[in-house]
Each structure stands twice: as structure tokens, then as C-alpha cells.
Write a protein that binds this DNA or RNA. Structure first.
Lengths: 254, 254
DNA sequence: CAGTGGTCTAGACCACCGT
DNA sequence: CGGTGGTCTAGACCACTGG
């Protein structure tokens, strides 16, 4: 039964299912090496291309990694970092220090957090001007923070401010902001008292995957936070998080 | 330059990049048909397998659909439904009628929502007993709601209740609950006053993909909500949402 | 160095679907 | 019916990596 067979399940599905079962059952554990492509060819009596179709499938599901050279393929580990983004006991939490949720999230987990900050002035990109209530081509300040864990990129937070609001403030400088950007704006009379989070997911573009060092099969989690003073938006933060590393937690009163 | 070439970008990447560019630029719009595999072979002078590698890549990125028979492949549409899960003006919103956030979300979008409810009594699955503060093998009631839009599955909400709390209530019946499950529990003295949402994402398992009718390249959004009376958990809802259809919105005071 | 995965070709049969 | 994508094989060369 060689070629385009039948109403049965495709061979590469059979192989993929078998491997998936071995992973789910614990026979193959996170970190373990998978059998070689050659071994799988022999084990299931199929061609290499068919084995590779199966392996590609599992990769796209995020179950295994690719593997170059002698390294072989490995069962992927899924270890989520919890980020508390809202907490009804301390309302200030969600709007506090610029990066405290990030820092707190990894605190005490043996991770060594760091970040790289870039600041730019530009015309508001698509969707941001609208959210900030500005004209389509208005100037905004973009603070881009690449967050690293033990040197590995794991999320990108891009904050946009109306230029007129933050010019001549430390927000324009690519350094940590004492008491956070929100606190700094508060000192200048813009006291944020409300924010809206939009959470969504999709597969990354190749460029986004490259920036986060993402391998195939890992989706990204998007969190877009708009901060308001009453009804005036003063800040939009667009955060892109590796889906295999993050969990957002909202704790709220009913 | 036939086989395993070079330090350049792989051929299938070149083809994928070209198609991606045509999609991003608007040359190919959502709903349009892609060129045939044969046409792409001719256009880029590569073998069919190489063309298919490129197309598989774009599929895994969620940019295009598969396509059988004469139907051809199509550029995918990404249209998000907004679900307001928390709203500081109406704290009751997030905990109100069992399915009001779902119904409200699609209200007035020309969608025709419906749902299929199943109820079962079983031992608490992994992670649920813990969240409910029950013994490992305690009995729970599972209310599973498959939510449909115009007949298409788009999310699955599984609610777990301690059996002792809800036996002999309408929660055990596979019908809509008047005033919602939360309201019903409140009438019986269990007034939920706090909840915690955990949001994460990953690629679906084949079974999950089948249940939601998901094609490759579409991640799922997970929302796990634990409802409390003070510190006693009374309900856990695990919602699995198609990533290409949903956006969760949390509106909060600072 | 030796073995692994990465890339590529040429050719084949079949299931499905619109016309 | 005829063309599309789905599945599969056999064989080839190369790049990368660990020992």
C-alpha cells in the first residue's frame, strides 16, 4: 500500500499519534531525546519524508523542538511564569512601577531578569493613534523594553505616549524610571485612574519569532493596556509575550 | 544548485517570504485564492515538495487555509470577537449570568449564537481538585458548554463545581440556568465575592482542534476562572477559545 | 570525524470538489 | 470530468554539532 492511500488515517498521522502518546504517557519526558529519524523509519517502516511530516506536525504543536547536528530532537518543556497584572487588594499593583509586574513575576524563581530599553519619537503606528485619541499622524514617544530571563528574550513591551505629554521628562531617556512612568505622570498632574486590557493570541510573524528567539509551534500572547485619566488616554502599552513561558493573572472582586 | 544548498536562505523560505509579502501588501487579500501549487512551481522554478514546505509554513503561521479538491487555498481572515470579562462600572458583569459575556459579545454583530450543554458527575481532573480545595479524587459536577456562532464551534467552557454544593440544583440539568449559576448559588447562601482569572495560550492538541474545528496554525486562548466566597472556592471554569476569533477585555480601576 | 537533522528533486497514486 | 491538494517513496547533498 505505497502511495496515496485510503480512507484510513495517513501514515504520518499514525507516527505522530504514536509519538504523542509516548510523550503524554510519560514514556518520553520533557528534556528527553526523541528517537532518530532513521530509527523511526525502521520502527514504523516508512520513508524519511513521512517521518519528517510527523515530526513537523509535533513541532507545530509545540510538543518537541527542532534539533541540529548531533543534538537530536527533544521533548519540549512548558513552564509558565505567572504575571499578576491586576490585584484587587492593591489596586496600585497594575499601574505601579513601570516594570514591577515583570520583576515580581520572576522574583524568587531562580531567574535573573534584565531588560534593554530603547526610546524613539515617531508618528503613531496603526491602531495606536486611535487608542490614544490622537490625530492619525500625531507624534508619539515609543519606549520599547525587551525583557530577558537569564539572557533569553521572553517578552517585548512597547509603551506609547503622546509626545506633548512626556517631552522633557525622563520617559524620553532609555533608563529605568524611578517610581515608574505612571508615577512620574502622576507627579505632573496626570493621575491614571483606570485602564483597559485587551488580551489575544496568534502565531508570530517570522520577524517577531526572531526577536523573541521563538521556535515553530509557539504562539504569542498579546496584552494591550490603555491607561486613562478619566476618559483621556495617556498611555498605550503593547506587550508581546512568549506563549510557552507566560500566564497572565487577573484577581478581581465580583 | 539543486540539493542541500548554501549559507543562503532556503528556497522554501524564499517562496514563503514572497507569498507573505504579497499578503501583507494587500496584493492578496483575505478570502482571495492563492496561486496553484503548479503555478508556484513554475513561478519560482522549484519542485512541488518545496512549494508545499512553503505553504505548510504559512499554514502554521495561520496566514492561509488548507484546501481540498477544486477549492484551492485561501488567505485567512482574522476577525476578533471582543469578550468583556471584567468591567469596573458593573462589577456584577464578570460574575453575572452564566453566559452573558458570551451572549453580549456577539450581540449586534450579525452572529447567531447558540450552545450545547452537557452535564456529568466525575472525579476531579488534574488541577481542578486543587483549585477547588478538594481531595484529589473528590466528586465534581462538570457543566460543559460548547458555544457556536452561526453553527460553527468557537469556544468550549467547562465549569466544575463541588458535587456537594450543587447536587439537587438545576446546575445538574443540561439547560440554561435562569439568573446564571452564580445567581443560583447566591440564592443558596454561596455569594461569590471574588474571582481570579488565569490567561494563557498554546497550540491545541489534535483532539481539541477537532472539537473546535480548528485548522493548523490557530492557537487557543485559555481562561481559567476560579470563583470564591471569601477564601472558599466554589467554582472553576476552564474556557478554551479559538485564538483567531477572540479577544478578552478587562476594564479596571487603577 | 561521524551522525544528526535540513533541504531538495522527481515521480507516483489517490480523494475530493466544483463545474 | 478534470484539476486541486493530500499523501508517499527513493534517493541525494549539505550544514551543524558533539565527542
Amino acid at each position: 500500500m505505497p502511495a496515496g492511500t485510503v480512507g484510513e488515517t495517513p501514515l504520518y498521522q499514525v507516527v505522530a499519534d504514536a509519538l504523542r502518546a509516548r510523550i503524554r504517557s510519560g514514556d518520553l519526558r520533557p528534556g528527553d531525546r526523541l528517537p532518530t529519524e532513521h530509527e523511526l523509519m525502521a520502527e514504523y517502516g516508512v520513508s524519511r519524508n513521512t517521518v519528517r511530516l510527523a515530526l513537523n506536525l509535533l513541532t507545530a504543536e509545540g510538543l518537541i523542538t527542532g534539533g541540529r547536528g548531533r543534538a537530536g530532537r527533544v521533548v519540549r518543556l512548558r513552564e509558565l511564569i505567572t504575571i499578576h497584572v491586576a490585584h484587587h487588594d492593591e489596586p496600585g499593583r497594575g499601574a505601579g512601577n513601570e516594570d514591577s509586574p515583570f520583576i515580581e513575576a520572576v522574583h524568587g524563581h531562580g531567574f535573573r531578569p534584565s531588560q534593554e530599553i530603547e526610546v524613539a519619537v515617531r508618528r503613531a503606528p496603526d491602531g495606536i493613534a486611535e487608542k490614544l485619541g490622537l490625530a492619525k499622524d500625531a507624534l508619539v514617544v515609543l519606549r520599547s523594553r525587551l525583557r530577558l530571563l537569564n539572557g533569553d528574550a521572553c517578552s517585548i513591551a512597547d509603551s506609547y505616549y503622546p509626545y506633548e505629554l512626556v517631552k522633557d521628562t525622563p520617559i524620553m531617556e532609555p533608563y529605568d524610571i524611578k517610581r515608574g512612568a505612571i508615577g512620574l505622570l502622576a507627579e505632573r498632574g496626570w493621575v491614571q485612574n483606570r485602564y483597559v486590557d485587551e488580551v489575544s493570541t496568534r502565531m508570530p510573524s517570522p520577524d517577531e519569532a526572531r526577536r523573541l528567539g521563538l521556535s515553530p509551534g509557539i504562539p504569542v500572547l498579546f496584552q494591550i493596556r490603555t491607561g486613562y485619566v478619566d476618559d483621556k488616554p495617556i498611555r498605550v502599552t503593547r506587550t508581546m509575550l512568549r506563549g510557552d513561558r507566560h500566564r497572565l493573572v487577573y484577581e478581581l472582586p465580583s
